[in-house]
Design a protein around this nucleic acid. Structure first.
Length: 114
DNA sequence: TTCTTGACTCGCA
DNA sequence: CTGCGAGCCAAGA
């Protein structure tokens, strides 16, 4: 799965789309799942290119390792990302996901051990 | 083909 | 504990 080979981006998008509603994950987790734990930045880069994906990518569910909305500034509005998360019952406080550890969705576990 | 960039992460001062 | 620097991989020019 997620072995499109068409590009690292496609894999990232595919994983991002698998993130359940009301859950969040980190760039590093996705990168690691793809086999490149050091490509966390690449994941963010993929999110930037997520608009190229045919299907909508829940980039708002992807945050940094501490659950902070590091990429909120890249959304249409400077506050859109937070609104999208709150729309999924995800509490956001100070640009940071509340109870991030509890809402954390690790593809390595959720998908890897599936 | 080489250099630059980037929504990250870890380590050290 | 906070702040700064280097490392990391992949894609675009």
């Amino acid at each position: 799965m997620a072995e499109k080979k068409d590009g690292f981006f496609q894999d990232v998008w595919d994983v991002a789309k698998l993130i359940p509603k009301g859950r969040v994950t980190s760039y590093g987790a996705i990168a690691k799942y793809l086999g490149s734990p050091g490509a966390a930045r690449m994941v963010g880069w993929a999110m930037n290119a997520s608009h190229a994906s045919e299907k909508p990518v829940p980039a708002q569910r992807v945050v940094n390792r501490i659950g902070m909305l590091s990429g909120k500034h890249h959304f249409e509005g400077h506050n859109l990302m937070q609104e999208l998360l709150e729309n999924e019952d995800i509490k956001v406080r100070n640009n940071q996901v509340v109870e991030f550890e509890k809402l954390f969705w690790d593809p390595l576990i959720e998908l890897g051990l599936d």
